[in-house]
Amino acid sequence: MAYQFDFSSLSGYGDLLAKGAGLTVSLTVVGGLAGVAIGIAGAWARSRPVPVLAPVVAAYVEVIRNTPFLVQLFFLFFGLPALGIKLGEFQAAALAMVVNLGAYSTEIIRAGVQSIPRGQIEAAMSLAMTPLQIFRHVVLIPALKKIWPALSSQVVIVMLGSSVCSQIAAEELTFAANFIQSRNFRAFEVYFVVTALYLALSILLRWLLSRLGQALFERRRHG
């Protein structure tokens, strides 16, 4: 009793899949940009001997890294309304991804910051630069360069993790897949195609991040 593959059963759902993929990309762009921005700010805060800020950031990082993404998402979407804060599906999904990537990238970027030799920071201090100027001009770019592959992987992980957002009815790619297979009962075909789409998105995202890294860290040629 051989299973009859029928990819034509997906015809008519192209728009839905495209829309889902579009939302996955949107979530990844928002989550990636804002999450890495938080990571940079968090790494800066943890590198400073500020009495309150550093422990607060440390607590944020530990809470997020030691709880499941799905629970974080449910907390934002189902929990916060109890406090009068109602978020839409996209808002809750995007915020959960920002908060999640923010914590992981804080740790990743912090490792890069710590790898900068003390002497370079002292040289910048001796040039009368402020701590913020030193972080921005002396520490940040070499630190990002060191951890760029790890940070890129984390952004891809967060993109793939966005599939969980289907659980709060954010209509991203996995939501579209679940919806389609509930209509045509063609689970193999649907998830086969969606797997291929995620794979393509991941490869594209890694390629873009690698190009971005080259642009950020590339040296100009000289004679």
Partner: peptide, 16 residues
């Protein structure tokens, strides 16, 4: 520090 420059044993140039 605006009045005092310093040169270090290990150069400490900014590599980027």
């Amino acid at each position: 520090r605006l009045k005092v420059g310093m040169v270090f044993q290990q150069f400490n140039l900014f590599p980027h």
